[in-house]
Simulated scan of single mutants.
Amino acid sequence: MLLTIGDAAKVSGLSAKMIRHYEQSGLLRKTSRTDAGYRLYNSEQINQLRFIRQARNLGFSLQDIQSLLALWHNPERESRAVKQLAEQHLAEIAEKIAELQHMQQVLTTLADSCRGDGSPQCHILQQLARPQ
């Protein structure tokens, strides 16, 4: 069964624009086209689009998704390579969480230091303007 890009978008959960982007970036191989130029997607490509959507939802980069796709299609793969990619991504997420928590702490301290009244004095602005 072949699906048009609109139908492929519906069943994969991606927009047609993102499907075209993934095709142009090489994550998805070029599709066959009708005589009128409409893209047609087969079930393998639909599964690949779903895979890409899931990986993007987990925050994997396009480069990581390319690696994951290559591993997925390689029956000789070693699971350690997949796990290594996942653990590397987990470490990046942990680092981002730590950065966000630090930002939260600093902003909480700044917000607590501001009276928030009708006065023009604001400790938040003073701290932001302070040279580091």
Rank of each mutant, 00 (worst) to 15 (best):
G13W: 02
D35L: 12
L128R: 06
A111H: 08
K83A: 14
Q88M: 11
L110C: 05
R53F: 00
R56K: 14
M18G: 03
Q105F: 01
S119D: 13
D35E: 14
I124T: 07
T109P: 00
L3Y: 15
T31Y: 00
A98D: 14
Q101H: 11
L3K: 05
N42S: 10
L68F: 03
S43I: 14
K96F: 05
A129T: 05
R53H: 05
Q63V: 13
I5F: 00
Q126V: 03
R20E: 04
Q66H: 08
A94G: 07
L3M: 12
N42D: 15
S113I: 13
Q105R: 08
E78C: 06
C114S: 06
T34K: 07
L110H: 09
H123M: 11
Q63D: 13
L62Q: 12
A81N: 11
Y41M: 11
Q66G: 11
Q126I: 09
R39F: 07
A36F: 00
M1E: 14
T31A: 13
A98I: 06
G6N: 11
R50D: 00
E76H: 15
L90M: 14
L125K: 08
L107F: 13
P75I: 06
Q45C: 01
K17I: 15
E78R: 08
S61Q: 02
A129I: 03
R33I: 15
Q54H: 09
L71N: 02
R20T: 08
L100I: 12
H123A: 13
I46C: 04
S79P: 06
M1R: 05
L49C: 10
R56I: 08
G13H: 01
R50Q: 15
K10C: 02
A8E: 02
S15H: 01
I124C: 03
I97P: 02
Y22G: 06
L110A: 10
D112M: 13
P120N: 07
I46Y: 01
E87G: 01
E44D: 15
L128I: 13
S119K: 06
L27V: 10
Q24D: 15
C122D: 09
K30T: 13
Q127M: 09
A16Q: 11
T4G: 04
I46E: 00
H21K: 06
Q127A: 12
E87P: 01
F51R: 00
S67Y: 03
I52F: 01
N74D: 15
F51I: 06
T109Q: 15
T34P: 08
S43K: 12
V11I: 11
Q127Y: 00
I65R: 03
L107W: 09
I124V: 15
H73N: 14
H102L: 12
R130N: 09
A111S: 11
K30C: 06
